[in-house]
Amino acid sequence: MNIFRLAGDMTHLASVLVLLLKIHTIKSCAGVSLKTQELYAIVFATRYLDILTSFVSIYNTLMKLIFLGSSFSIVWYMKYHKTVRRTYDRDQDTFRHWFLMLPCLLLALLIHEKFTFFEVLWTFSLYLEAVAILPQLVLLQRTRNIDNLTGQYIFLLGGYRGFYILNWIYRYFTEPHYVHWITWIAGLVQTLLYADFFYYYFLSWKNNKKLQLPA
């Protein structure tokens, strides 16, 4: 464990807790894409299949349980909670996210480190995580503005992957044979997807005005 990975995990934890807190406290999920949340639940479900078979550390297992629990809770709130579900903007959140999953699955069947059931699903979860934010970014473009908590959620989510890139660089230079091209490229693509959002987030923060994404 290094400081970059710890910062990344804490930022990731903060992003899901910020979102869960928002939805639980104000009983609203306005501006949040259910499609992105469903994709994240699938990302964690396919990423942590080995939670019962391979034990790394208490920290690792605890964080996996938190990520699984929070992502499925957010989906539950948005789909089934009597008050929250009414605030979900289903006509605007129309991204065909199943069309994202198929290419990720095909790519995982083609490019992976080992051709085993767990490894292919794990690789699928990496590719899916890279694009999972797209429905949320599309929703923001449509609604043309963004409330603070959703903005913080995306900002933290992008920051977590940025910290992970620093972690991969650190591990590459400090651990012999630590080479995971698939993880690195998927993580880089994911972070680049956030880059333009970060740019507009920074502009709105600098000019101290409401974040408006270009049409």
């Binding site: 990975r5 995990d9 990731h12 990423r47 080995d50 391979s54 790394v56 550390s57 690792n60 964080m63 996996k64 990520f67 480190e113 794990w122 992970y164 972690n167 044979h177 630590y178 993880t183």
Partner: peptide, 10 residues
Amino acid sequence: GADSNKKDEL
């Protein structure tokens, strides 16, 4: 070895 490619990241 086995642990080198053990998935220790979240």
